[in-house]
């Protein structure tokens, strides 16, 4: 088996591991490090359920080779918040009933981390467009959008606010 030794920092912990050159980052995280928050709902980057952050950018970890992350910093859902305090996005998802079955939740939250990093004051429409690569089959996305907007307000230091209720129902095909 063709392998490489990689040095990668995962959730602030340096790891030195030997990985097969064909192993996807998702499988490395799940199988080698038991970081099972990244989920496998497809194999081709279409669902977003395996999203993690590599050097603060969201990636679909099924489409990235573990070997490519040599020298990088990887953040998974397990790396957000700590035992005493959830990350504001995690808390907002929990408070807004944004996790039903929860299979897509980690990917949604990590994509939102990057979204809010780039745009701390997104509009509802910007949230919807920013998360278009993450599929959820349970929620119809409404509670997820509400959660991201609530977390954004909180992270800006504002009182947690409700979603922009003036935007009418309109979904482009």
């Amino acid at each position: 088996m063709n392998t490489r030794t990689i040095n990668v920092t995962v959730n602030e912990t340096p790891q030195q591991r030997e990985v097969s050159v064909s192993t996807a980052l998702r499988d490395f995280l799940r199988d080698d490090l038991d970081l099972i928050g990244a989920k496998a709902a497809c194999q081709d980057g279409m669902c977003g359920n395996c999203t993690v952050l590599v050097d603060q950018r969201s990636v679909k970890s099924c489409l990235v080779l573990a070997a490519e992350t040599h020298g990088a910093e990887v953040t998974t859902i397990e790396g957000l918040g700590d035992r005493t305090a959830l990350h504001p996005l995690q808390r907002a998802f929990a408070e807004n009933f944004a996790a039903q079955c929860g299979f897509c939740t980690a990917g949604m939250i990590l994509t939102s981390v990057e979204l809010l990093e780039r745009n701390p004051s997104p509009t509802l429409q910007e949230v919807r467009e920013g998360l278009v690569g993450n599929i959820c089959r349970c929620t119809a996305y409404v509670s997820i959008a509400e959660a991201v907007l609530q977390a954004a307000a909180e992270m800006r230091g504002e009182t947690p606010g409700a979603a922009d209720a003036t935007t009418s129902a309109g979904g482009e095909r």
Binding site: V132, I135, A140, V142, A165, G171, R173
Partner: peptide, 21 residues
């Protein structure tokens, strides 16, 4: 039989429902 061919509604496909609706 994959997510490219069998498309399920994405974030922007589903209308955003307000409580009033």
């Amino acid at each position: 039989f994959d997510f490219t061919g069998y498309q399920i509604p994405t974030f922007t496909d589903v209308p955003y429902f307000t409580n009033d609706q």
